[in-house]
């Protein structure tokens, strides 16, 4: 009896093994949990929110942050039509892959098959334009940070006056959720910074919410097929478990 309990507990322990990763909380307060359209087993990306988020990225964030893993053609997944994607692409100038016949690299209008170009040609130029700090690529940021979407949302909305006695270094900003509380990025969002085509009021929390939805899609574009397939697979396996268990019991009935 104690054995059975112990075995079950251990099996449970193994399944909980990852929770053993108790990340030291520092003094950073725990992130407030937001509600996301993509949460949960049946989560999906709110396309309207993601399109607004893309607009926020384009008009605010893209001044400093690249999205290296996104192609223009990926935007079709957000609900833009083929023509709209072509229009967005051609509004950018991209460097052609091959030089011209004189051996010089040249710019041309973007095509859907091109990557979305970033604001700087290389990391050194990015640092030079940002006081030595390197604005990270945003196409993976939601997966590349503990806390994911809630963390990015927290950063965007977490700018506050530093508490009394806090030693804020020159050129840095105080942010509640950034580890160490000192972030080089000035608050990127302010109310009304972007005018949404669908008329949604562009408050900071709204823009933060929308851009995080967009960035989560950018990091995990296959979330919806994954959830859909997963549902079918798990359902199939549940049935299989039942059938195989019944078969096992039937075959073993004569053994005892």
């Amino acid at each position: 009896m104690p054995n059975r309990i112990c075995s079950a507990a251990v099996l449970g322990l193994f399944l909980c093994a990852p929770i053993l990763n108790a990340r030291a909380a520092d003094e950073t307060p725990s992130l407030p949990q937001q509600e996301w359209s993509f949460d949960g087993v049946f989560g999906t990306y709110d396309r309207a929110s993601a399109q607004r988020g893309f607009q926020v990225y384009k008009e605010v964030c893209s001044a400093c942050h690249p999205v290296r893993h996104l192609y223009f053609r990926d935007l079709a997944d957000l609900g833009y039509s083929e023509d709209e994607v072509k229009a967005i692409a051609s509004s950018y100038q991209v460097t052609n892959e091959q030089p011209n016949d004189q051996g010089e690299m040249y710019q041309r209008p973007g095509r859907p098959s091109d990557r979305i170009p970033g604001p700087f040609p290389n990391d050194q130029a990015a640092r030079a334009a940002n006081n030595g700090a390197l604005p990270p690529d945003l196409s993976m940021i939601v997966k590349a940070r503990e806390g994911g979407p809630d963390y990015v949302y927290g950063i965007l909305t977490g700018y506050k006056e530093p508490p009394a006695g806090f030693n804020l270094l020159a050129g840095m900003q105080y942010n509640v959720y950034f580890p160490g509380h000192q972030i080089a990025m000035p608050p990127p969002l302010s109310d009304g910074a972007v005018t949404f085509a669908d008329g949604t009021p562009s408050t900071v929390p709204q823009m933060a919410h929308d851009v995080v939805t967009f960035l989560t899609w950018a990091a995990e574009p296959n979330l919806e097929p994954r959830h859909r397939t997963g549902f079918k697979v798990l359902l199939f396996l549940l049935v299989a478990v039942g059938v195989f268990y019944a078969a096992k019991r039937k075959i073993w009935a004569t053994a005892h």
Binding site: L15, H227, T229, G230, V233, L234, L237, V241, F244, A247
Partner: peptide, 16 residues
């Protein structure tokens, strides 16, 4: 039978 039970756990991680 044990395999199907295991696959349930595995699939949960992979898909969710």
């Amino acid at each position: 039978f044990g395999l199907t039970v295991f696959l349930l756990v595995y699939a949960f991680f992979v898909f969710y």
